[in-house]
Amino acid sequence: MIKPGKQQVFAVDNPDTFNQTALQVFNYQAANCEVYGRFVSGLKINPADITSAEQIPFMPVEFFKSHRVVASGDVDEVVFTSSGTTGVITSRHHVTDVSWYEESFRKAFDLFYGDIKEYTVLALLPSYLEREGSSLIYMARDLISQSANPDSGFYLYNHDELYQKLQQQKATNKPTILIGVTFALLDFVDTYQIDFPELIVMETGGMKGRRKEMIREELHSALCAGFGVNAIHSEYGMTELLSQAYSKGEGIFYCPPWMKIITRDTNDPFTLTDTGKTGGINIIDLANINSCSFIATQDLGKVYADGSFEVIGRFDNSDIRGCNLLIA
């Protein structure tokens, strides 16, 4: 099976080219990813009978906890690992060509926010910095480097230093984005208040048991008040994928053209739900070419007619995930 290249995947710009590329990726991964191929075979599905992206079987995300999910014979360049509470088995995403990840998040950022070089990027990601293998830290580090701005950087628990930097950015009127794990952003505004309407605050989810869970409206209201902004942006991604969706407010996410969300019936994983109805979130991530691009997550959500979606919770008994775990 022919493996689509970056030029094809990242050039997807309409439903027809998405469907065609998704089918090519499916056939390639069904033949070359042993774990996914066995999953498809176990369902008694003949890949030749699949004619649309909606018919493609979605592999449970839990497989990344017990298997090396790869569709490439190359050695790993990096292994991303999920965060988890003590005693919880974490996922491992074996990435044999990290340039796919870099191109995916760089192109997506440019699509949603414009040239990274125009921004100061501040990252408040303590729990991620304190462990190995975080794909979010990899992305944030690259964006900080790409910003080419000496004011960009990471913050751990040095909130006073971050507050001073935000005041400085406000005074010099520099476009600034603050990427933060949810509990750390809340910890910050518990102590510091700033009126910085131009600031982009992007929460990445994750309370990690550090604070009580909050509904999205309550959380975003607290952060809006603390930072003096009108809306809170969000990033939706996960260790097992190489693409992210973004929300610029109200918890409504949009995917880059090479990513798509489809929802499934909560009782029958092989039946898809209608637009606007709550279901389990299935993700197609064409950038995840050397692994599995068709993942059934444990998140619950709704997809709308324009392709946007919202995350409204988790299936019962799901272990806590780092990105993005807001309950609306």
Rank of each mutant, 00 (worst) to 15 (best):
M1Y: 10
P4S: 07
P4M: 11
Q7S: 15
Q8H: 12
V12I: 14
D13W: 08
P15N: 02
T17G: 05
F18I: 03
Q20T: 15
Q20M: 13
A30C: 15
G37L: 09
R38Y: 10
V40Y: 00
V40G: 03
L43R: 13
I45D: 00
P47W: 09
D49Y: 00
T51H: 13
F63Q: 14
F64A: 00
S66Y: 15
V69R: 00
G73A: 12
D74F: 07
V78N: 00
V78P: 00
F80I: 12
G84L: 08
T86F: 03
V88P: 01
T90V: 14
S91I: 06
V95S: 03
D97N: 15
S99F: 00
W100A: 13
E102M: 08
E103F: 01
E103P: 00
S104N: 12
K107Y: 04
D110W: 07
L111E: 10
G114C: 06
D115I: 00
D115V: 07
E118P: 01
E118G: 03
A123S: 12
L129P: 03
I137N: 03
M139Y: 07
M139N: 14
M139V: 11
M139A: 10
R141C: 03
D142L: 08
P150V: 03
S152M: 03
N158C: 03
H159G: 11
H159A: 08
H159L: 14
Q164L: 09
Q167F: 02
Q169L: 11
Q169E: 15
K170A: 12
A171I: 12
N173M: 06
K174C: 00
I177R: 02
I179C: 02
I179S: 04
V181T: 11
L185A: 10
V189L: 08
D190F: 10
T191W: 10
Y192F: 14
Q193M: 09
I194F: 05
D195F: 14
G206N: 01
G209D: 08
M214S: 01
M214T: 03
I215Y: 14
R216Y: 09
E218H: 10
H220C: 06
N230I: 08
I232M: 11
S234E: 15
Y246P: 04
G251Q: 14
I252F: 07
C255H: 13
M259C: 06
N267W: 02
N267M: 11
L272Q: 01
D274W: 06
T275H: 02
I283R: 04
I283S: 05
L286G: 02
A287Q: 03
A287I: 07
A287Y: 06
S291H: 09
S291T: 14
I295F: 05
T297A: 05
Q298A: 10
D299K: 10
G301K: 04
K302W: 01
E310P: 04
G313I: 13
D316P: 04
S318G: 01
S318M: 02
A328R: 10
A328P: 12
A328N: 12
